[in-house]
Design a protein around this nucleic acid. Structure first.
Lengths: 341, 341
DNA sequence: GATAGTCACGCAAACGGTTTCGTGTTGATA
DNA sequence: TATCAACACGAAACCGTTTGCGTGACTATC
């Protein structure tokens, strides 16, 4: 088991100084061609690679970026992660992943673990609990230390930093308008608690579309479901009570569950009830009928977030007043068989 | 923007030496109670945290583990990742994620990026291309350098290291036996190319179950599908040609697609055709009918892999001859509505 | 032949910690 | 009062790199 070879080993072996070796390997003009060739050959033979940790310490740059997301077993977040990872790797960065599990405490802990030199910057999406508590001190700590931060999807106005968000309101507006144009009038909104700001935005779009088309917003048509719970009974009661002819769901899981209940109750999809969901994942694609859904372009989102972050990281202008950007990813409606074209 | 505070700053400010500060913060007996208190208070006030990079360099231990997986937008791998991350975090380790995208080149590149000091060890699952090429030199390089490696799920006998695998053959045997006990005789196997050793193992179980029950194996009942392609036509033709009364699929996507085709063709599930898949993901859970499937317990697998790795990392016995372990995760059959109980 | 200018390399500090060992001061002891 | 241990702290090496600067040797110039 040969341990990693270092500059010191090469220097000793070739009877030159460490600095000479270092410079020779960087093809410095200072070193003579002969010496360079000798050293480079030796290094190549023994497969020398500089120790990342030492380089990091010296350069004060780790080439690591920390990604803190609420959930990893989740289609949207994995696609974003994928986008981040692809872009970052192409730029020579590694990605350290931390999952907050929708927990405030774990989010704080993760950031503390990484903010002591392990990463050059953070990309994150707020946990549910953090959004509930509205406590962003851990983010302020990090930015105060000068560590760049990019928020995506679940963001907050309380923190000044680069952000990447979806045009949630607009796409929800578009989806509902599609229903209305198709003659639907009793359009349900199936959503989560409102402390998720994305749900809130989608809800705004839902309402705006109604108002703009002269249709009153009926609060009874809004159903709030909980993640990772059995919602089928609640859905059934909802469908029985209300006369629904279209449903907009804030995620694909809710949509598929609702469709399942509707089918069991004897409704025809899309004739009796049309469905549109959010997230174009395997559920949407493989549902029966295939679900019309909002593609959030997670990979794009991740790539943009990574680009923003790396630009900040590599920007060494010492300006104190930074112009933070908010990039908007345009969602698109993918029409399948749960709506009438 | 206050930069991070260092030992040096504290030392200068309190007019003591750096070593005194370091020792005081570790509550060393060498330092007087007064001095310790003073230093600790100061450090706490300025929120001093040791720089991870410097500590890593000194200790030759990064507290990072590298995870290289073929795909991240994939239920099974995300659950394993989740298990790794949970266990590792609890032990104070961070997880650096690299996605090989089923590509040999990216797998090699990822490992090179991380093997120069960035991580203390690797957990990985082989990419499809790596399994095809049968080229494991990048793994040998890493282990030769004394960096611990744990392989999971997609493993190879060519590398001596700790491994975590599923009892694929046995659980496939069990699934097929369930079909046979239920009176099924024309049992299809829907699988991928055989260079995936997990598919191979499942195929072995499928065959063994047939032989042990005196049923000849019929190669015509084996359908090979491709990932991320439109398979529906191929499935339809297969079902038309063969008289199938049960289907074992090596993943949930294939199972759901097959069920969809079967339903469209007018078959009753599970009466006419029963289905069993692999992976207990959202597809299985939300399919119509809900899919009977093999739960692979990815989180458990990840946790075990992380445990094995961290044990190796923290084991400082200098023994050259290591006794490598292979842990087997017991899969379980989750019975839902696509089979008759 | 004295001076200046290259060239090719080494020294040493620096990054931010940890840790071994040495040392000045104090108080107790004989 | 000389001796010594205990105490409390500092100096310095070390982890593996990078890099500014110093310097000795050689060559070129007048």
């Amino acid at each position: 088991m040969k341990r990693k070879i270092t500059l010191k080993h090469i220097a000793r072996e070739l009877d030159v100084s460490i600095s000479t070796v270092s410079k020779a390997l960087k093809n410095s003009e200072e070193i003579s061609a002969d010496t360079k060739e000798k050293i480079q050959a030796f290094a190549k033979f023994y497969n020398y690679k500089p120790n990342n940790i030492a380089v990091s310490l010296k350069n004060k740059s780790t080439k690591n970026i920390g990604v803190v997301i609420p959930d990893i077993v989740h289609h949207f977040f994995t696609t974003v992660f994928r986008g981040i990872e692809l872009y970052a790797n192409a730029k020579g960065y590694n990605v350290i992943a931390c999952v907050s599990d929708e927990s405030f405490a774990k989010e704080v802990l993760s950031m503390e673990m990484l903010s002591n030199g392990s990463v050059d910057g953070f990309i994150m999406s707020l946990s549910a609990e953090t959004q509930q508590k509205n406590d962003f001190n851990h983010l302020k700590e990090v930015t105060a230390q000068g560590i760049p931060l990019v928020l995506f999807d679940r963001v907050t106005d309380d923190i000044k930093c680069d952000k990447v968000i979806l045009n949630d309101k607009e796409i929800a507006y578009e989806a509902v308008t599609k229903f209305i144009d198709g003659g639907r009038r009793r359009i349900a909104l199936v959503t989560t608690e409102s402390y998720f700001n994305v749900s809130e935005k989608r809800s705004e779009g839902y309402k705006a579309a109604h108002l703009d088309h002269g249709i009153p917003v009926n609060e009874d048509l809004c159903l709030i479901l909980h993640h990772k719970e059995i919602n089928l009974q609640a859905i059934k009661i909802f469908f029985e009570k209300q006369q629904i002819d279209a449903v907009l769901c804030v995620n694909e899981l809710f949509a598929v569950q609702c469709m399942g209940v509707a089918l069991k109750m004897g409704f025809q999809i899309p004739e009796d009830i049309s469905f549109i969901g959010f997230t174009d994942g395997i559920l949407s694609q493989n549902a029966q009928p295939a679900l019309t859904t909002v593609a959030q372009h997670g990979e794009k989102m991740g790539a943009v977030a990574a680009e923003l972050l790396i630009n900040r990281v590599e920007d060494d202008s010492q300006e104190e007043s930074i112009n933070y950007l908010t990039e908007i990813i345009e969602a698109t409606l993918i029409e399948r068989d749960s709506t009438i074209n």
